[in-house]
Amino acid sequence: MTENTPGETVPGNARPTAPGWLEILAGGAAYAASFLLVAVLLPLVENVAVHGVVGLLVSGAMGLIAFAAAAAVRIRGLAAFGVRRAKPHHLLLAALLGLLAYLLGTVTAIVYMTVSGDMQNVQTSYQAAAAAGRWSLALVFVAGVTITPLGEEAFFRGVLANAVLARYRAWIAVLVSAAIFALAHGINPVLAAAFVVGVLAALLFRWSGSIWPGVVLHGVNNATALLVPLLAARAGV
């Protein structure tokens, strides 16, 4: 099966076969509006563990809302946004790269903290939620390992990276989309780790044409980031 280049049009079809600037603007506006709403309402959740679960849920929801806004601009199949079947070897590679992303992200976060002097742990609420009991841990995993990766990959790779890849050289598109993804996580130590995930997920999207390898990579990275501190704390490390 021959794939169309993002942004191309199919003969006899006036609509582009992949997202463009219109979809980026629509999705970006929806994401920004959701982000501002969450920034106002999330601090009202006082319980740290509940705050962590809700924070992960809304992270995924923001991406899904942005994706829905982008997809609604011009009607076409979801395959145009990379919602298509991935090959098994892409998914296996994604799982391995998820572990690599955690290791590289940890190193880059340490470098960031050393250089900037910013030692804040912005994932305290997520870690507290994971340590708050069996049900809380289950909710954290559903939110952080499934919903958040799905929402963020759908928008940042399926819309943003997809559209940018069609218009610029691959390395520019990968770096730019990863930088925007990282900035969406705030100016803090997570920024460096998010950039690593963004680069690897964008490369996977370019190679596979599907968002699912990125979802797997993202999920494995998040699962590792949740489990390692939890296991270390229980081991008394």
Rank of each mutant, 00 (worst) to 15 (best):
V142P: 04
A143F: 03
W135K: 01
G105M: 07
V10Y: 04
P149Y: 04
S177V: 11
P213Y: 09
A66Y: 01
L217E: 06
G7C: 08
S136F: 02
L56V: 09
A233H: 02
R15Y: 09
V159G: 09
A86S: 12
E153F: 07
N222W: 00
E153L: 05
F195V: 12
P6C: 08
P189E: 10
A80W: 02
L78D: 10
W171E: 14
L37D: 00
L56S: 15
G219C: 12
L230R: 00
V53P: 01
W207K: 13
S34L: 09
L36N: 06
A39I: 03
A130E: 11
T114F: 07
G133T: 08
A30S: 07
V38S: 10
A225T: 14
L44Q: 14
A166N: 02
A132H: 06
A223F: 14
T146Q: 06
E23R: 01
R206W: 05
L41C: 08
N188R: 01
L104T: 05
G60D: 07
L150P: 07
L200W: 01
V174F: 03
G151K: 02
V40P: 03
V122E: 08
L203K: 05
A95N: 11
T224R: 01
P213F: 05
R76P: 04
S116G: 15
V190D: 09
A173E: 10
V115R: 02
L217G: 08
L91K: 00
V220C: 02
T114K: 04
L183S: 11
L78R: 05
A109I: 13
G151L: 03
S116H: 03
G60C: 05
V53K: 00
G158S: 07
E152H: 13
A69Q: 00
F81Y: 10
F67Y: 10
